[in-house]
Amino acid sequence: MKGRRLYLDGVSVVFDGFRALNNLALVVEPGEMRAVIGPNGAGKTTMMDVITGKTRPTAGVASFGDADLTRMDEAAIANLGIGRKFQKPTVFDALTVFENLELALKAPRGPIACLRWILSGEGRARVEEVMEETGLADRAQDPAGILSHGQRQWLEIGMLMMQDPELLLVDEPVAGMTDAETEHTAALLARIAGKHSVVVVEHDLEFVRALGCRVTVLHEGSVLSEGSIDHVQNDPRVVEVYLGR
């Protein structure tokens, strides 16, 4: 199963005449970490929506290994091994931290399987391990609804770790965080990155620099520039549309 590449080519998404994505191409190699930056409306979130099956592209190819992402729904893509962290942390408020993580744990997903589900010792150990890693161990029995913004982000990252995806899409993980929280988040992502492919959408260039990975710059729905952070920061077209404002 290991070692599938994410491949987007010629992807366009048109909403009522507006081209949110325009002939977009992106390849993420197995195990690679990639940062995607771009001004508001550049199509970053739409790109994530296409990869995770939330939006069907109007044209183009989107595949993961030999699976055609344009023909699958969100749940099937998630089970394929593509996990997504949203810009606004979405966790299940009525459930405890432990239960949130348990839901994300890799296991059969059907109604009957869920009715018959008994958490194994191994599964429990995994939940506890992730709670340790995300720093939420002492909140295990608290409902997620009462967590702070940073803790909700970590819980969501923890849920992704439970899913153990092969490719991880992370949308603005440090928006609205304090410096200490940003640091903790960067460390968490770095730990995940070792084992998985990661695509990070981010506004914070310092954070992107700290990730030390290849950067793709989007503008008006297509790729404007790609390369190291220094390369793109010195690309005159990038400076014009994004950095030099």
Binding site: A75, L95, L103, A104, Q163
Partner: peptide, 18 residues
């Protein structure tokens, strides 16, 4: 718990693979 999760954040549950 899956039902409760669907009630509170249906699309998030899909992205968990349910």
């Amino acid at each position: 718990r899956v039902l409760t999760a669907i009630r509170d954040a249906e699309s998030r549950v899909r992205f968990l693979g349910y």
